[in-house]
């Protein structure tokens, strides 16, 4: 498992992979809630497609997390049989969908982090990580192109669409800082050459966000406060309900094969 990289702290590696997989799982879940309810048919298709990409990435990240952990679990066991405290996604992705503007802004703020993260991971010292990143990066480049484009069009649309996008931005802004906070696990990943320092992604993220918001005629919020906790398992109240929904069948019929 970690034989190729004997110096890696296995627990930190599992922690990192779980964070990647939980981010895509929980965001994929949120996006999939839109199915059949989007403002136009093309968006129904695009949202389902985005959710599908994210769930596919989840299978890879959590699959590798389970493999590295070496405790006989698999991706499904991690997704369906952990309680909220063991989830490691950032708080941003568990925010409720709100209106379409909230959903698209959440997606954009995440995508603008996700893409440079994956680009850095393509150069990971662990070939399995590099391989997953290389596959996901193509999908996520498109996610960012789409979400950024929609932020611009709706920000610079009608007075109402502008106001809604600004409200969504103001609402979600304080949940973006967590994407760039590092802890001991992150430091171990940096030392092993597996993943970049989260803080190193902030400048490129901010440049992307500024450029899109400017074209969208939206104002960067002044707040510098950051909500945090998801990365270490302290979540909002929303995650419990997401899991109650997602894990229902596995919990109600333990051991059943589907």
């Amino acid at each position: 498992m970690t034989a190729a990289l004997p110096d890696v702290d296995r627990a930190a590696f599992v922690e990192f992979l779980t964070r990647m997989g939980d981010n895509t799982l929980i965001l994929g879940h949120r996006v999939s809630e839109w199915c059949g309810h989007a403002p136009v048919l093309e968006e129904d298709i695009a949202l389902a497609n985005t959710a599908l990409d994210l769930i596919g990435q989840t299978q890879f990240w959590l699959g590798l997390a389970a493999e590295v952990e070496g405790a006989g679990r698999n991706a499904d066991a991690l997704a369906y049989l952990r309680d909220a405290g063991a989830f490691r996604n950032v708080l941003l992705v568990e925010r409720p969908n709100g209106d379409f503007g909230h959903t698209i802004l959440r997606q954009f703020l995440f995508d603008a982090w996700h893409l440079p993260m994956l680009r850095a991971l393509e150069r990971s010292a662990d070939p399995r990580v590099a391989e997953i990143a290389a596959k996901a990066v193509k999908e996520v480049a498109y996610h960012l192109e789409r979400s950024g484009d929609l932020v611009i069009r709706l920000g610079d649309g009608t007075a109402e669409s502008h106001a809604r996008m600004q409200a969504a931005l103001d609402d979600l802004w304080d949940y973006t800082g967590e994407l760039f906070m590092a802890d001991a696990s992150d430091a171990a990943m940096v030392a092993a050459g597996i993943a970049p320092d989260p803080a190193s992604l902030q400048a490129v993220w901010l440049a992307e966000v500024r450029a899109v918001l400017e074209e969208a005629t939206l104002t960067l919020p002044a707040s510098t406060y950051s909500h945090k906790g998801g990365k270490r398992g302290v979540h909002s109240e929303y995650l419990g309900f997401i899991l109650a929904d997602m894990q229902f069948l596995q919990r109600a019929y333990p051991g059943a094969v589907w």
């Binding site: 136009v40 968006e43 503007g101 611009i152 069009r153 709706l154 649309g157 009608t158 109402e160 669409s161």
Partner: peptide, 11 residues
Amino acid sequence: GAWVRDGLVAH
């Protein structure tokens, strides 16, 4: 979704 469609048209 009316505001979204209107916004896209306006843009």
